[in-house]
Design a protein around this nucleic acid. Sequence first.
DNA 1: CGCCGGGTTGATCTTTGTCAAGCTCAGTGG
DNA 2: CCACTGAGCTTGACAAAGATCAACCCGGCG
Lengths: 237, 237
Amino acid sequence: VIHSPHLLRKLQQLQALTDDDVDAIRRLPVRIVNYGPRSTIVAERDQPGQCGIVMSGFACRAKTAANGRRHIVSFHVPGDLPDLQSLFLKIMDHELFALSACTMGFVPHEDLGALVHERPRILDAFWRETLVDASIYREWIVNSHRPAAEALAHLVCEVSRRLQAVGIATEPALPFPVTQVDLADALGLTTVHINRVLKILREDNILQMRRQEIVILDAARLAAFAGFDDLYLHQLR
Amino acid sequence: VIHSPHLLRKLQQLQALTDDDVDAIRRLPVRIVNYGPRSTIVAERDQPGQCGIVMSGFACRAKTAANGRRHIVSFHVPGDLPDLQSLFLKIMDHELFALSACTMGFVPHEDLGALVHERPRILDAFWRETLVDASIYREWIVNSHRPAAEALAHLVCEVSRRLQAVGIATEPALPFPVTQVDLADALGLTTVHINRVLKILREDNILQMRRQEIVILDAARLAAFAGFDDLYLHQLR
DNA sequence: CGCCGGGTTGATCTTTGTCAAGCTCAGTGG
DNA sequence: CCACTGAGCTTGACAAAGATCAACCCGGCG
């Protein structure tokens, strides 16, 4: 039985569900698995027979290019369904990776497939979830073309907004257990450059990154500097 | 009535459809609209009540950043459903743009919604279409982090593969009606640099771009240079 | 104690951007 | 028929962003 307030909260933001729908989701058979920090949850080219829900912790999706370089293409917070796509795309074109210690709930494809074919509202919510995902990818393409400091600022704005949407954190301090190497992999830069950019943002009193968290010192200036517009997150509020 | 062999060919590659399914798609009410080259089909922040099918011509999706710079986030060829997402995400976070003269077929959201709720296989095919879209976005994020020449080569590999999948073209010459400005907008570079990179690829006898087409001179070397792996296109073959 | 992952910094090199000019060619109007 | 125009392409000289290489620091842990 699934107990993920974050998931339900998010789905309700995407599509109004009835109590019946919520019950149906709660009744899904789920297998709970714990992952240590910095471990692979699903590998590239795997053919999983189940979809994962992030119950707690932070995960990311990463692709490895032909030259061996690792590219993080998205971050995932509790309540996310980071490989819902595996329901239809049978072979993983990327890996799913636990950034921090992470609890995942796995639901077999058959059960999810049956659920969406029986419950139109849940279908809508899940499909919409994957479409918001795609919208975030679009924004990341744009973000990859921004100068390093703006790109980093934009990423922080996004993570902050998404954490607030599932009720995990409020500014100024956000949990975000990533290393500078991870940030470099996500933005396509080197750790050296990430480090310098962080220094600039810190000295400008815009934001600060500590061990496992971000501290936003000036949210307004951060958003303005990043050119952040939250339309692409399609949060209904 | 829809008459798009490219669409049907592509959907069949994603998910086996019955004759009934195909008939249901053919019976969809469709409004045909022609667009001139370099014209907007759906604007950013619009709230369309219909989804478009590219019947002929080339289109793209583009986002405009806060600083005014335009970013192309995907290219679309005949048979594509470039704004299927508008079925669920009611406000456009990007624009849909005709690169060449373009014929679009528009189907009202109600009819599409009814179709996918009635026909599980069509639901699967359409959902899968949007998931392949998302997979392509992931690869574009990676591609944005490649050096300019490799990124351009990779883009050409992708367009070539997708055109072949819908039966529009075979190597070596592919129709691709884009300017160097468009390529710059798609790769996050300047036209000056695109021009220099094209010169290098031309002088290396890898590929050549003419008025409205690409000529691939050495497909094997092109793919190797780009580090191209077609897994992410999820073509079933 | 020593190691190691992660962070920090400087010097230098490479890739890409900026600015500016000139070219080509298809379409237009005289 | 030809000159004019303008969009798109090409090239050079120079500047800036980011990468590379090489140290060194710090704190946790075997």
